[in-house]
Write a protein that binds this DNA or RNA. Structure first.
Lengths: 202, 202
DNA sequence: GGATTATCTGAACGCCCGTTCAGATCAAAG
DNA sequence: CTTTGATCTGAACGGGCGTTCAGATAATCC
C-alpha cells in the first residue's frame, strides 16, 4: 500500500517540516530520529527523503526559513521616522515576532552547533544582518542626540538578548498579557539607551 | 592491561567530568557518546561507569554542580549595603562568574530538555532561587525609592537575560576588555531600573 | 481506460548506541 | 611477600541510527 488518499507533496512536505520543527525544539536535533519524525507524520522513514536530501538539510532549511521570515517581516515594517520611534517599533516587533514562533526561535539558538560549518556561516550572516539593523537605529539616535550609547554594537546585542529573553518565561494566560509585557520591556530598553528617560506619571 | 601507572579515582573522575562538560557544550548531550568521552579521557567506555551510574547522571551532576557553585559564589559576596550598590555588585558578579565558565553556562541553558523531569525540577528550583535574589534586590530598591520598576520579577528576568548575553559574543582579546564590558552593561542596567539615571561627564 | 508519474512501503545496508560484566592488572595494606 | 580491593579492559547485549532502493500503489494525463 502506498499513496493513501489525498496525500500529496503539498500536504506531506509542510507536515514534515512542521513535525521536525516541533520535535527538534522539544528534544533537540540529535535526539530526534528520522523514524520518529516519520511516525508522527504518518509515513515510513524512507518517504521523508522525498522532501529533504538528508537530516542536516531539514534542520538548515528550518533555520534558514526562520531567519528569512524574520528579516522579511522586519523589512516590511512601515518607516517609523525618528530613531526613538524606530527603536520602539523594533522592540515591539521583536517581542511579537519571537512570541509567535517559539519553536523556530528556540532551535535557531540551540541547534547552531549541529549545522555544518558552511550552513552555520549562512545562518550567522543572517543573524548579523538583523543585529546590524538595530545597531544602525542606535547609531542614528546617537547622531541625533536622543541616545546615549558609547558602544552601539554592544548595546544592540544587549537589547536583543533582553527582548529575546521574553520567550524563556512568558506563557499565554499568565498574570500579564503580551501587550503589557511589551510595554514593560520597551520602557526598560528606552531608559537604558535614551538621553532623557521617559517621564512616568506620579 | 588495566590500571596504568598513576591513574586513580582522584585523577580519572575529574577528567571524566571535565571532558563530558567540554564535549556536551561543543556538540550537545545527545550527540556525544560515552565512547567519545572515554576516548578523550584515554579509557574504555566501561570504565566511565566507575564514576557515574549512567549518562543522565553525568549531565545532571554537571548542571547541579554549576548551579551550586553559582549560588555559593553569589552568597559569598560581601554585603554591599544599599540596593544600588547591591545591584551593581550583582551585575558585575554575574558577568564575571558566567564569563569564567562558558561551557557550564552553555549546557545549563541548552541541555535542560535532556534532563529527566525530576532532575529538571531540581535545576529549575536552583535557577529560580538565583533569580529571586536579584528580584529581592530590586524590590528593596523600589521600597527605598531608588529603583523605578513596576514588575520586579520581570525586570529581574530581563536583567539576567541581558547580562548572560555577554557570553554569546564576548571573546578574549577583542576590542574591549571584560572590565570595560562590565562597565557598559552595568551602565545600561543602572539606567534601565534606577529612578535618577547616572550622570555622565560631558 | 491505459499509460505515466509522483508518492510511499518495507526491507535492507553498515554502523554506533548505552550499559553490563567476567576477568586482568596493579597499588596499597598487613 | 601475600592478600586485598580498586580500577580498567575487552567483548558482548539488544536496539536504534541515517540512508538507499526495488517494487507497489494511486492520482493524473491523454
Amino acid at each position: 500500500m502506498a499513496r493513501t488518499q489525498g496525500s500529496h507533496s503539498d500536504i506531506t512536505g509542510p507536515r514534515v517540516r512542521d513535525t521536525a520543527l516541533r520535535l527538534f525544539a522539544r528534544h533537540g536535533y540529535a535526539a530526534v530520529s528520522m523514524r520518529q519524525i516519520a511516525r508522527e507524520v504518518g509515513v515510513q522513514a524512507g518517504a521523508l527523503y522525498n522532501y529533504t536530501p538528508d537530516k542536516q538539510s531539514l534542520l538548515f532549511d528550518l533555520l534558514k526559513g526562520h531567519m528569512d521570515d524574520l528579516l522579511a517581516a522586519h523589512a516590511a515594517q512601515p518607516d517609523a521616522g525618528a530613531p526613538l520611534a524606530e527603536l520602539e517599533q523594533f522592540a515591539r516587533f521583536h517581542i511579537r515576532f519571537h512570541h509567535d514562533r517559539p519553536d523556530a526561535v528556540f532551535i535557531s539558538y540551540m541547534e547552531l552547533r549541529n549545522l555544518t560549518p558552511e550552513n552555520f556561516e549562512v545562518i550567522e550572516g543572517l543573524r548579523r544582518s538583523y543585529e546590524d539593523r538595530l545597531e544602525a537605529i542606535l547609531r542614528r539616535g546617537v547622531e541625533a542626540g536622543v541616545f546615549d550609547v558609547a558602544e552601539p554594537k554592544i548595546a544592540a546585542m544587549a537589547v536583543i538578548a533582553m527582548l529575546t529573553g521574553v520567550n524563556t518565561w512568558f506563557r499565554e494566560g499568565g498574570r500579564l498579557s503580551l501587550p503589557e509585557v511589551e510595554e514593560i520591556y520597551w520602557d526598560m530598553v528606552h531608559r537604558a539607551v535614551a538621553t532623557s528617560p521617559p517621564q512616568h506619571p506620579a
